[in-house]
Nucleic acid binder design. Structure first.
Lengths: 236, 236
DNA sequence: CCGCCCGAACTGTGATCACACATCACTAGC
DNA sequence: GCTAGTGATGTGTGATCACAGTTCGGGCGG
């Protein structure tokens, strides 16, 4: 059973279903804040936009609905959930707990390469945030890159998946805001927290990393909540 | 625009799609351990078993696959994932961290009714586990009831959803074991941990509750791992 | 001029069909 | 006797159609 050596060099053909691609596309829209809370979607419209039939979109949407990143109202309308202030607070608290734990583990067990990747991500975000007119979309993406560079070092893949799901739920309300008002970055809250996290990870100080990440999340959540744009009660 | 008062007393008609029902049915099979790791499913067969078309089953399966509770192999075969020892360990560690945190919060903020519910669930499990020939299926169900009675008191709904997903992934390997060898209960490990948790929650001692839940999870995981039935590397 | 009603357009849901692919049993060939 | 090719069967995936329910706007009646 010998085969030509050239066969071993062939790259594996990537096998992705259209539903997977549609899921990724919608995830990207949600995570980047290009879909705002309350935005309505239509299976047929998004299918047309993606150039496929409704079937793959149905599957993608049903997954996202299962994640709580989309919701199908009783009206059979499909929309990005409008979190109540209470739900948003619970989500933020959960993120502080879960992501804080991931950061703590990352600080204690990060490798040299992982630390280097975190350093690069932090520097990229900082250099952008310090410009006079930060680009909101890029800020969102770089902030995401930094956080996930940290969580990548936590050593627990299930934990990373959980965090990714939490970001899908929080993404629209958080990132829509950051996208719309990138000048808030100039206040320097995020930069300070990120520096604290980086320092803690360099020093392998788990509790400090946990506190800094929790503070980063808490700062942003408090800002959103203080603006009072979130409804007190859930919209039916 | 007045309406007879009797209308207000009508219970809302529950609007569930067939896909939701199919999802719940499959969840139940997974959580109770009636589906074992490696078991293969077929859309058409399960659809026939549920008396519906393949469409609702497709949606349910795609959600479960997104949760990692099922997987579609490259062969286009649908099966319950066979966790590698490493993946199982990471899952158990994640559960210890997440569920421990939930138990800690539950201990500190539980209400009187929540404590009563936890007491009842603990008593039910204990009385079953102390019988000479414990019923495996009932043990699985009561253990689940107890854990979720605790997590219900944590005050964070997103956290409860996360835990439910983790149980879907761990359910088949854990509960298949408990179902098959219920006499292990007689060793009393679970009973002891549960008593510790209950005591900690009564005393509003968060750290103790966290430690007891983590130990409960760790005990079971160590037992499974020590048996060595899990493959060292993932099956493709 | 305001309120109500009805119909057209659109929504998600479910069923059914078509297709490419994987698997297995089997046979022909070396 | 063993391997490689070949067909039948069953798989998930995707497209298309049918339908109940909703939404929204135009027009009738007040």
């Amino acid at each position: 059973m010998s085969s030509p050596r050239a066969l071993a060099d062939l790259p594996q053909i990537e096998r992705r279903t259209l539903a997977d691609t549609a899921y990724d596309a919608l995830c990207d829209l949600l995570a980047s804040g290009r879909l705002a809370p309350g935005d309505k979607l239509s299976l047929r419209q998004t299918a047309a936009a993606l150039g496929v039939s409704v079937m793959p979109v149905r599957e993608a949407v049903s997954r996202l609905a299962s994640d709580g990143a989309l919701e199908v109202a009783l009206n059979r309308a499909l929309r990005v959930p409008i979190l109540s202030a209470r739900a948003f607070r619970e989500l933020a608290e959960t993120r502080m707990a879960v992501e804080g734990m991931a950061a703590s583990r990352a600080a204690m067990r990060r490798s040299g390469e992982e630390l280097a990747a975190i350093r690069r991500a932090e520097a990229s975000f900082r250099s952008l945030a310090e410009t006079a007119q930060p680009d909101g979309a890029r800020a969102v993406a770089l902030n995401r890159d930094l956080h996930f560079a940290i969580y990548a070092a936590c050593g627990l893949q299930p934990l990373r998946e959980i965090i990714a799901r939490l970001w899908l739920k929080a993404g629209p309300v958080l990132n829509l805001d950051l996208r719309a008002y990138p000048e808030r970055l100039r206040q320097g809250f995020a930069i300070r927290r990120h520096a604290e996290v980086l320092g803690a990870i360099e020093a392998r100080d788990g509790p400090a990393a946990e506190a800094a990440i929790a503070a980063d999340i808490g700062d942003a959540a408090d800002f959103i909540l203080s603006r009072g744009a979130l409804p007190a009660t859930a919209i039916p």
